[in-house]
């Protein structure tokens, strides 16, 4: 893989902790997903009530992007996201709302979130980014597909920067890792480096 590009910065959301470039910006002793998100919102987000209408996957991606893009002024930024469970966390809830005719309450507000790429839509709206989006689903984090695709977007000048992500919510477990790839930055955009940053425990 060519190494013409660099990772500018990255964020993690995992185990009640949110960090940017390895530095913790939020920590809670809560373990359940919903209270963690609520507490993080209170500390990190200024007045964005739409957050509470989002499903779990969008909330997770939104918060990870919020801390990462805080000082980002460039709107020419593509998004290449990935995860394992797609929107299954929300799909299960929706399916239970239609499982039999006596308990049949399909909600349009829930149905619209039964798509993983809605997470990128929410981030696009929040940061007013009109850009290339693509959502890949894979059985575990793999830098390879993301990096090939990202390099091609940058080679063809489809965007100045690319926001890459692993953002997964499934059966109460959650994990987000976001990073910005650009022509300048701290870390080489190589598979080894991406995998190292993905595994970096928040210190």
């Amino acid at each position: 893989m060519k190494n013409d590009y660099y990772i500018e910065s990255y964020s993690h959301v995992k185990n009640g902790e949110i960090s940017v470039n390895g530095k913790i910006v939020f920590k809670t002793l809560e373990t359940e997903f919903k209270p963690v998100m609520k507490a993080a919102y209170k500390k990190l987000v200024v007045d964005y009530p739409k957050f509470f209408k989002m499903d779990n996957l969008s909330k997770l991606g939104f918060l990870a992007a919020e801390v990462l893009l805080k000082n980002e002024s460039d709107k020419d930024m593509a998004m290449v996201f990935s995860n394992r469970a797609s929107s299954l966390d929300t799909d299960r809830g929706y399916q239970s709302s239609i499982k039999d005719s006596t308990q049949y309450y399909p909600s349009p507000a829930v149905f619209v979130y039964t798509l993983a790429n809605i997470c990128m839509g929410e981030i696009s709206i929040r940061h007013q980014i009109h850009s290339e989006n693509c959502f890949f689903v894979m059985d575990e984090f793999s830098s390879e597909t993301l990096s090939y695709y990202t390099n091609q977007l940058l080679d063809e000048n489809k965007a100045k920067k690319v926001l890459c992500a692993w953002v997964d919510v499934d059966n109460g477990k959650y994990n987000a890792f976001l990073y910005v790839v650009s022509k300048k930055g701290t870390f080489v955009h190589s598979n080894a480096e991406i995998n190292r940053l993905y595994k970096t425990t928040n210190e």
């Binding site: 797609s86 798509l115 790429n117 989006n133 091609q152 080679d155």
Partner: peptide
């Protein structure tokens, strides 16, 4: 290799064509 899976709502099918072209151009 494992399949590359594109799931991007109702643009998935045409986006997959763009993804294929980009993966081929990148030499994958």
């Amino acid at each position: 290799d494992k399949a590359i899976i594109v799931s991007n709502a109702c643009v998935s099918g045409i986006l997959a064509v763009a993804v294929a072209k980009r993966m081929i151009r990148q030499g994958k």
